[in-house]
Design a binder for these strands. Structure first.
Length: 960
DNA sequence: CTCTCCCTT
């Protein structure tokens, strides 16, 4: 350890130890004053400016120096352990040092070694020998009889009349022939053509009727849980059966499985991917349907890449890709130019209008002044102005188009579209158009697509405040994943006659929520999309123009019951510039989980595999993700999966959160931490109904109970929910607190799944998250914080200042991370409402840049926990001879030699313990040396709690 | 001073 080097150095004529002593005293005095400490900032001799500077240069010099100083101070903190703790912990550690090392638990070793040493190819070859499907004559006969019975069923026959009218039915024979004579077939057709419900049935029925049902086991993947269920229900209904006979579904934590053979299972793509981990050849499955491949979600892209390899080892496996009708050549080309059968026909025709038509029809001419304010120079440094096009650009873009249509439209329309503000979302225009339709067009619901919460909120207010609005004549719904309406049935119900239903929605209504009675669609042409910037390593959420594919999908939502109308609120000129398709998700996201899961499949050269996907992610993103996995110790230097990595890969959760629940098992605080993990990996149980934002924020703060933690707030919510449920009170509890029952139930189920898996991996002895055996430390708040930070590490931020403003409700905060500089708590985080903190450090999971870099969920952390559970290049002396200890690449803590020694030793030993536990999983025996180590860690953490003892508390400094 | 969306035997 560097700090062991006690070689005295001379600095300004003082000995190192003397200077240290002086600095320490100065630091302690500063802390006693309760202010921000300015300890150890060079002596007066160094303050002078270089000679020869003049005028402005002098100012620049001081400004520069102040900035540098501030920057260093931002990242520097102070930590000292109490002497009595040091003695105690050193004693514990010396006993621990003599302890024996651990060996592999044998069954785990075999499994681990097979994963590291075999390849994906080899594994498939081995699995091929294990099983093959054999025809079962008796089963075939039994199922043929059942099939005949089904065909005689009147209900089945009645349903068949409707089924035969579906467009896909015209291609039934062609499809069956293509599947029979090709291993891979692409079927394309638009919404409503019937491909999802019918094609798997065509295949199944052909096997049933030819007496080969035992050779048919169909899986059909869906990108969404809901569609897997609803499609399965629909298909069972068409067959006049119940779910669980020839049709079933499987989604996470919920399934109704059909008969083992001669059946169709609708499942999510994630389920198939998980199954591939243990069953890479999909043994027993005869047909895989991949539905909605055009959506290009990560899972579908990865499954396509895997299937491409699998089919050569499974010549009897049939793969059927199903897609909308755009971009089909991409998929066909990907599978060696496979046959593409295109199904013509869809729902009802939809007439399209564009902004210029809408202006003409509504006579709307009221766009804001077109002249853009000449910007002061400094504004170009502010993000929000950066991406807006200049007026000149817009003019040269719209002029040619405006000229080409000037004879077809009124002058005010041409002037309107020449105004660049006509491309911004205009609530007045939207409101005018909605009332125009309502009062002048035949009955039918109106669906408005807007980018996000803010626009929905504004339009909702504008409509309901309008003089044309009345509650008797209108039923207005806002649809957003965070609003209760998205979970309720009311939005589907048809309103009484003469009542106009208006739905204002995000793109949730593009695919996830289908409202049948929509006849009018208003497409703002905007949507929000996350992106990942490999250079800044930041996830962003940006408002973007929709693509032609989005427009088509939105348009189609108007034609489900009758011919419809779609109003696009952009010009035909703008449409011409729009992209054909959205960027595939795999190009917009981080890849840690994908990579770890590929490693589980024994694909060692992940980068090479990813290069074979339909869309190849940027290599720098792959490398960044691998680097993080190495840092988490999930991969070793040669990028092989480690024992820890293997445990993390088996958990259905991000590796960082997986690490958190493994630690919770070791530290016996399973209930709250699995709550945190479920919450982070699924979704927030709080609704945010329109107009209730402040109320919900207050309730969140109430649930946080002064923990200064969004994570523990969520854990408190789950605990209280469970308690209320026990009393039979859950409905009113959820209603009063804007909570989603279905989300809370799913979170509870996920917790159970985590503990099941932890027990299976032998980290726990009880699979009940609430079992006292799993929760000896669950009320130790500081420990809970530490486990959260250990999991989320290296996601650390530091609050430098909290300033209470008279004019604002929430205080202003000065927060930084080493990678990003200035960041902010997201306004929905309970910590954005706090007026002071006991510690300056915060762990976060989600960081996203929109109008600022926001941390969405944060927990205040004892910096000692970060030092023990984090990483860094150790410790040493700075130029002034002060001891310091490093956290990560940038944070630096001033300390003394013994404190540094103890902390680094704990860090090292804890890493060892985790690795030891990974190869020999098991709970920590309270009598063992491991318990001694955990005890020592707990000791240091507890002693570091803010205790009103400023001499020895760590760098909490009571940020105010 | 704010919240596209989806998912894991």
């Amino acid at each position: 350890m560097e700090s062991n080097n006690d070689e005295p150095r001379r600095l300004d004529g003082r000995t190192v130890s003397g200077l240290q002593q002086a600095l320490r005293e100065q630091a302690i005095r500063a802390m006693n004053r309760g202010g921000r400490s300015h300890h150890g900032r060079g002596g007066g001799r160094h303050r002078g400016r270089p000679p020869g500077l003049r005028g402005r240069e002098i100012g620049m010099f001081y400004r520069q120096r102040a900035m540098e100083r501030e920057q260093q101070e931002e990242l520097e903190s102070f930590v000292l352990l109490q002497p009595e703790i040091i003695v105690k912990v050193q004693k514990m550690l010396s006993e621990y040092d003599s302890a024996s090392t651990s060996t592999f638990r044998s069954e785990f070793e075999n499994y681990f070694k097979s994963i590291r040493s075999t390849s994906f190819e080899q594994n498939m070859k081995e699995k091929l020998l294990e099983s093959c499907v054999e025809q079962d004559d008796r089963l075939d006969e039994k199922m043929m009889i059942e099939y005949d019975e089904m065909m005689d069923n009147l209900k089945f026959q009645e349903n068949m009349i409707t089924r035969e009218k579906l467009p896909v039915n015209t291609k039934k024979e062609e499809i069956l022939n293509a599947i029979a004579s090709n291993q891979v077939v692409l079927i394309s057709g638009d919404t409503g053509c019937g491909k999802t419900t019918q094609v798997p049935q065509y295949v199944l029925d052909s096997y049933l009727s030819s007496g080969k049902a035992s050779l048919c086991k169909i899986f059909c993947t869906q990108p969404r849980r809901i569609s897997a269920i609803t499609v399965a229900e629909r298909v069972a209904w068409e067959r006049a059966q119940h779910l669980g006979e020839s049709v079933g579904y499987q989604i996470r934590l919920q399934s109704v499985l059909p008969h083992e053979r001669g059946s169709i299972t609708y499942c999510t793509t994630g389920i198939l991917l998980k199954r591939l981990e243990s069953d890479p050849l999909l043994n027993g499955i005869s047909h895989i349907f991949l539905d909605e491949v055009h959506e290009r979600d990560v899972n579908t892209d990865v499954v396509m890449g895997l299937l491409k390899e699998i089919i050569s080892h499974r010549p009897d496996l049939k793969v059927i890709l199903m897609s909308a009708t755009f971009n089909t050549s991409t998929f066909s080309a990907y599978f060696n130019n496979c046959t593409n059968i295109e199904v013509q026909g869809t729902l009802f025709p939809v007439t399209e209008f564009y902004l210029e038509d809408v202006l003409e029809e509504t006579k709307f001419a009221n766009f804001p002044e077109e002249v853009q304010r000449k910007r002061p120079k400094w504004e170009k440094y502010r993000n929000k102005y950066k991406q807006s096009d200049s007026l000149d650009d817009y003019t040269s873009f719209i002029e040619p188009y405006a000229r080409s249509v000037q004879d077809k439209y009124s002058k005010f329309v041409i002037e309107g579209i020449k105004n660049p503000n006509s491309e911004k979302i205009n609530v007045d225009l939207l409101t005018a158009l909605i009332f125009h339709i309502s009062f002048n067009k035949p009955a039918g619901a109106i669906l408005v697509f807007l980018p996000g919460y803010e626009a929905i909120s504004k339009l909702h207010t504008s409509i309901t405040n309008s003089k044309f609005y009345s509650a008797e004549k209108f039923k207005v719904y806002a649809l957003h994943s965070m609003m209760p309406t998205a979970d309720q049935k009311s939005v589907f119900s048809r309103p009484p006659e003469n009542v106009r239903k208006v739905i204002i929605s995000t793109n949730i209504a593009e695919t996830s929520i289908t409202i049948d009675d929509v006849v009018y669609v208003i497409n703002s042409g905007k949507s929000k999309m996350t992106n990942y910037n490999p250079e800044t390593k930041l996830q962003t959420l940006e408002e973007v123009w929709t693509t032609l594919a989005n427009n088509k999908q939105r348009r189609g939502r108007a034609g489900r019951v009758q011919p419809g109308i779609c109003y696009h609120l952009f010009t035909r000129a703008r449409e011409f510039t729009m992209d054909a398709l959205p960027t595939p998700e795999i190009l917009r996201t981080r890849l840690e989980s994908v990579i770890l899961n590929l490693k589980m499949l024994r694909i060692h050269d992940v980068a090479q595999f990813l290069r074979k996907l339909v869309s190849v992610p940027d290599d720098s993103v792959v490398q960044t993700s691998i680097a993080l996995l190495k840092r988490l110790n999930a991969l070793d230097e040669r990028e092989f999966i480690t024992p820890l990595g293997l445990h993390l890969a088996r958990l259905p959760i991000d590796p960082q959160i997986g690490k958190m629940i493994l630690l919770a098992a070791l530290f016996k605080c399973v209930d709250p931490i699995t709550s945190v993990a479920a919450n982070l990996s699924f979704k927030d149980p709080f609704y945010r109904p329109l107009g209730k934002e402040k109320l919900v924020d207050d309730i969140r703060v109430k649930f946080s109970k002064d923990t200064k933690s969004d994570h523990l707030m969520a854990a408190n919510v789950i605990t209280e929910y469970r308690e209320e449920k026990r009393k039979g009170n859950e409905r009113s509890f959820c209603y009063d607190n804007f909570l989603s029952i279905s989300t809370l139930n799913q979170l509870e189920k996920m917790k159970g799944q985590f503990t099941d898996l932890l027990m299976e991996a032998r980290f726990l002895e009880s699979s009940d998250p609430t079992d006292p055996k799993n929760n000896y430390n669950s009320s130790n708040l500081d420990l809970l914080r530490s486990i959260i930070s250990a999991g989320l590490y290296p996601n650390v931020a530091k609050v430098r200042r909290v300033k209470i403003c008279k004019r604002r409700v929430d205080p202003r905060m000065d927060i930084i991370t080493p990678e990003d500089g200035r960041v902010s708590f997201h306004p929905s985080s309970i910590n954005s409402k706090q007026t002071g903190f006991e510690y300056k450090f915060f762990a976060y999971f989600m960081k996203q840049k929109s109008t600022a870099i926001y941390l969405f969920d944060t927990t205040m952390i004892n910096p000692r926990a970060l030092l023990i559970f984090g990483d860094g290049e150790g410790a040493g002396f700075d130029q002034l001879g002060n001891h310091f200890i490093l956290l990560g690449d940038s944070f630096r803590f001033r300390t003394n030699r013994v404190s540094a020694e103890v902390i680094l030793k704990l860090r090292e030993k804890f890493d060892e313990l985790l690795q030891k536990k990974a190869i020999n999983p098991g709970p920590v025996d309270p009598e063992s040396e491991d318990a001694l180590l955990l005890g020592a860690i707990t000791e240091v953490l507890n002693a570091g709690r803010f205790s009103g003892h400023p001499d020895y508390s760590s760098d909490e400094g009571n940020v105010m």
